[in-house]
Design a binder for these strands. Structure first.
Lengths: 197, 197
DNA sequence: GGAGCGGGTAGACAGTGTCTACCCGCATCC
DNA sequence: GGATGCGGGTAGACACTGTCTACCCGCTCC
């Protein structure tokens, strides 16, 4: 682990990331993070004036990771050849993130635990939405239809709803599906037209 | 208020409902509820063995209220004459609930604060989804398409995502819209086909 | 060599959920 | 009619939390 040889500020964030991954959001106590980092409970206060400021720093790494994953699947050449596949990959990234990094995903949208104002959360997620909206705009069947940002917004909302309700088991219970795949394709078919393949 | 002349069990729930409405989820401390009910902090324990069991009882009234509102707008005759308007009204009920009873809405989907197992949460929300799925099934353009429950599930997910992301300001920021109306209609047009009106 | 100070320690405080001992009024029973 | 349970609530303790404050130690700088 590089948790030992870095400055305390970065170390606290790294420990928090590890902690939320292994034991969920409820393990992200200020004192627990300090303990895991091997410092006293008052030490974080020098770098993070409050609990939520530390949690926000932890969540920011999550947004950065999500943006990286999105950038990885968004190869520019592919975007114009098959924009729909591009959108599908982006959606898959979102759902995979929610599934494999469940604790971090929960933290990222627990607005009562984060400082939404000062923090670069929105600033870091806005370009991600921009990328998404661009790709959606290219993948839509009739460009004369509704506003592209509106479609992208509705698509994102559906995606987010699926991620949330699926992890809680509600959607599995309600629809009887045993995988998110059918739901995702229903969502994509609805907003982008049926899959031409 | 009937908070005084009822049994303590019902009084605690009523006080909690009032509290979450006025001051949000974070005010729903066990001791705060007891204080507001005028009893000692140990009193709730006789009826609710744990904190989450009391919060679950409070949340259940929220699900009941939501189901009542849905039943109010779902008049059986209208369902077959204009099923799409029916679906739209149901969606509007959901979004109105999230807007006007924001604290309760947040509590209802804070699964870390509720006991999802023993509790009648899913049991009380499943028939609500059933009603929704039935109406959606009648409103769809081509019944030979995807599974009705799947469409209803995707629609619900989109609805829920809009409700969440809108209250956080994310969707307003991303789409530039100043109202949920356009997003809702984008969602409905996508899943049910363009509005024939 | 003493002053200043960044960076961390340690203790206090109010607040929380849970547990446990107690207690009081009221019905029941012999 | 007085002792007995006992439902229903009180009160104190415990471990834990986030925040605040006083302190302290090793380093640099003049």
């Amino acid at each position: 682990m590089t948790n030992q040889d870095a400055g305390l500020e970065a170390r606290l964030v790294a420990v928090g990331v590890q902690l939320v991954e292994e034991r969920g959001v409820q393990a992200l106590t200020l004192r627990e993070i300090a303990r895991a980092a091997g410092v006293s409970h008052g030490a974080p206060r020098r770098y993070f004036p409050t609990h939520v400021s530390l949690l926000s720093a932890i969540a920011r790494t999550g947004f950065a990771d999500l943006a990286d994953r999105a950038a990885d699947v968004a190869v520019p050449g592919e975007a114009e050849r098959d924009p729909r596949a591009q959108v599908e990959r982006l959606c898959q990234v979102y759902l995979d993130f929610a599934r494999t990094r469940g604790g971090m995903f929960e933290l990222m949208f627990r607005h009562d635990l984060l400082e939404s104002g000062h923090l670069g959360l929105r600033e870091s997620s806005l370009p991600l939405f921009g990328l998404f909206a661009d790709t959606v705009g290219r993948a839509r069947p009739h460009p004369a239809g509704a506003d592209a940002r509106l479609v992208a917004g509705a698509l994102w909302a559906g995606l987010h709803g699926i991620a949330q309700l699926w992890t809680w088991g509600s959607l599995r219970l309600a629809t009887g599906a045993d995988d998110v795949g059918p739901l995702l394709h229903t969502l994509l078919d609805a907003h982008l037209g049926p899959d031409p393949r």
